[in-house]
């Protein structure tokens, strides 16, 4: 990235309209890191203090709304943090219920993500190998992305039932696009001199894909996987929210607690769901750092 194009971190993220641009914003995020040689406590402070201050302010606002804005009779709309934590995480039966939901959601989201990765990467490879297919298919993939998935969800229920499979389908529909778009972008992002280098040695298409294109695409692919990881959790929860056959997942629990106006449990479920999203995102960031970090320029 040249200096001219360099945007500030929030600007780079906020102005990223496509998944590609989001991936391009990654160096800006890395630039947030402190220069090497900074003492550990300053690094720690740099990483922790900012978010902590924001957390304290947010919790403060939360308390303010619960105890000042809301009338005691309406306090169930926004139960205080300690009520949420006590009810959701320190009552044995409730905790078990949530953890079971978390397990179901994790399994379904990971299954969906795995399918998205396999499908998205395969389609991207096929499109990059056959330009005709890319030109034919890509507009429809963009269309798929613009259809509000929520509108499709009830239809999916009609077509394939309301069980585990339907949740996976929603999950894949939501998470597959960034994988496909980023992989395709990655497979095409190397200079044409490499094509000459490989043609000089009469390297076949398949070998070139394995030895050149896929490794070159790896950084963009991982950026796609990370975005998709968060989306797969959202997809699973949306699916579970609508399709309540089978084991209760976090989505089904959200629906149930909403119906019962159980504020503390509702908040607890939301916290767990976002924690899962963050964990999967972190997992893929870690894998990416190991696989790509040591060589990426």
């Amino acid at each position: 990235m040249t200096d001219k194009n360099r945007k500030s971190v929030p600007e780079a993220i906020l102005t990223a309209e496509t998944q590609d641009e989001m991936a391009m914003a990654a160096p800006a995020i890395r630039a947030m890191a402190l220069p090497p040689g900074t003492p550990w406590w300053r690094k720690f402070a740099g990483v922790v203090v900012g978010p902590m201050v924001v957390l304290v302010i947010l919790v403060g606002i939360w308390y303010f709304i619960t105890y000042v804005v809301l009338d005691p009779t309406r306090r169930f709309l926004m139960p205080a943090p300690q009520t949420v934590i006590n009810t959701a995480f320190f009552q044995h039966a409730d905790l078990i219920l949530l953890l079971k939901g978390l397990l179901v959601t994790t399994q379904a989201a990971m299954t969906g993500l795995a399918i998205s990765i396999a499908f998205g990467v395969s389609v991207a490879i096929i499109m990059s190998e056959a330009k005709v297919l890319e030109r034919g298919l890509f507009p429809y993939l963009v269309v798929l992305q613009t259809i509000p998935i929520l509108a499709l969800v009830p239809l999916i229920g009609f077509w394939i039932g309301y069980g585990f499979t339907a949740r996976i389908v929603v999950c894949v529909l939501i998470s597959v696009f960034p994988i496909m778009a980023n992989t395709l972008f990655g497979l095409q992002s190397y200079s044409s001199t490499y094509d000459e280098l490989f043609s000089l040695h009469q390297v076949g298409r398949w070998k070139k894909l394995i030895k050149l294109k896929l490794p070159m695409a790896a950084p963009a692919m991982f950026a796609g996987f990370r975005i998709a990881a968060g989306l797969s959790v959202i997809g699973e929860i949306v699916g579970g929210f609508f399709f309540q056959r089978g084991q209760l997942d976090l989505g089904a629990l959200l629906d149930e607690f909403t119906a019962r106006l159980n504020g503390p449990m509702l908040f607890g479920t939301v916290i767990l769901a976002s924690a899962l999203g963050v964990a999967i995102f972190g997992l893929f960031s870690g894998i990416s750092a190991v696989v790509v970090g040591r060589w990426k320029e």
């Binding site: 200079s191 001199t193 490499y194 280098l197 000089l200 490794p215 790896a218 790509v292 060589w295």
Partner: peptide, 15 residues
């Protein structure tokens, strides 16, 4: 038996 050296080093960055 040709060795071709390009203007850019064209090394594979991941190797």
């Amino acid at each position: 038996g040709i060795g071709f050296v390009f203007q850019e080093p064209t090394l594979l960055p991941f190797r």
